[in-house]
Nucleic acid binder design. Sequence first.
DNA 1: AGTTGAGTTCCATTATTTGAAACTCGGTTT
DNA 2: AAACCGAGTTTCAAATAATGGAACTCAACT
Lengths: 273, 273
Amino acid sequence: MAAKQNDETAEGGTVGKALSVLDQVAAFGRPVRFSELLERSPFPKATLYRFVQTLVGQGMLAFDAERNAYALGVRLVRLAHTAWQQSSLAPVARPHVDQLAALAGETVHLAQLDAAQVLYVDKRNAAQPIEMYSSAGKVGPAYCTGVGKAMLAFLPEAELAPILAQQSFHVFTPTTLTSEAALRSELRAIREAGYAFDREEHEPGIICVAVPILNAGARPLGAISVTSSTARTSLAALEALAPDVQSAAETIARDAEAWRFPNEIKSNERAGV
Amino acid sequence: MAAKQNDETAEGGTVGKALSVLDQVAAFGRPVRFSELLERSPFPKATLYRFVQTLVGQGMLAFDAERNAYALGVRLVRLAHTAWQQSSLAPVARPHVDQLAALAGETVHLAQLDAAQVLYVDKRNAAQPIEMYSSAGKVGPAYCTGVGKAMLAFLPEAELAPILAQQSFHVFTPTTLTSEAALRSELRAIREAGYAFDREEHEPGIICVAVPILNAGARPLGAISVTSSTARTSLAALEALAPDVQSAAETIARDAEAWRFPNEIKSNERAGV
DNA sequence: AGTTGAGTTCCATTATTTGAAACTCGGTTT
DNA sequence: AAACCGAGTTTCAAATAATGGAACTCAACT
């Protein structure tokens, strides 16, 4: 129950600074030269240099000698494989995601909340062979996506408030919600209905129904959605799928609970309230 | 061309030590208690504690309060998404992997070398909807897999030697190569033929043909393979597919080269001034 | 030969990390 | 009820690692 709040999310520690370099490299999205990194870095040359050396030595960055540029290292891919398996719903949810995709004949997304953003952890496109890693790992805004709103709607106020404060409310389309107040009233409606829509709020022409995946304590673990386009279908037609999405979400939640205990703290269960 | 060799792969730096904790958590493959970590850790309690705190603060580890256990954090999934895109062949290779899978009607693997191991970065199963993340990120031994041997065969001696020294030569099946000498002679044959077989060397009943993906300088960037089982086909039948695998590998190599330059150091007129 | 700039190393200073020990806080034992 | 226990947390002086200004290397240009 430690009420411990480590605010210094990135300060003070050498480790944090080094990791921030990783983010920087990631931000470029391509192999990057030392000097390019240096320009945008708060660190002096020698310091940045040592960080980069360390990270390369650690396999977190890869140095391409031909181009002499740095890219994210494969150790990350390896770690992420484990991370994805152990701290995401995806492995548990897969069969249900498959089933829902087949049933709906539309794209299905599985997402979780990462800080104030939506992190897509799986995706299934009924039509064509998948394209997974390309979307697993992607992040999106929470305030204007179906899955994002579905999760926010079921978050306790104490956690919701700081997250809402971090939303950009950038206007992507005419229907994007542009204020915390508007979003809050939308969340109320979602809580009531049990499912959320994306009414072309993020991308024009793209609509979806999303349902939160709630654990036994009604805490949102993630969300699942069926996405389509206005060209192919309507919100009303998607709404008809809501019960299917909900039943998928419930099954996933059940499986997720079941999954937690087998390979778990086998020793005594503390009184745990 | 810095001849710099940072041998101290994990020593001395705080960053390295902290990252080693990440690996430890990953090794458990499940959420882990502080005390479990401590038992197997070379660090004293207070030190480990601070590492874990730092990593949680950084989003590299996630703390599950209910279970009070630590798991790998989602920041890794995010970073890995970028890593996969920017430092793996997978995005470039995808269409060709698809095509080869369809043509062969068998499972296709795309792998790269990560230190002395094989890292699978993509997989396509012609028959049924894929199961990708489950394999992207997986690692395997280099000395007894088709893709591994295909890559090793085209590595310059200077790089090959240290890698061979790190192979375990663990005996998985009766056909597993069990010595560096045996492997070296196999590699010679592969270099000559241009493709490698896996003759049930890693798993009984599993066979494959693999071809390295070579860049302009004949350096192996990765390898691609068609895998099947002895129940379904034979090595001879797989060998017949070798030309197709080779042409896929060549196309991928060509695309990879082309890909490198577009979104690259566009300001190479820096000298021009 | 001379200049430039990316990349690398040096090293005295400074700040962080270290870890033994003490403490906290539920729960358990006597 | 008091004492105990052990997982988890905090403290603080000593030890260690990080810092960054400046000097250096080396190749490509002028």
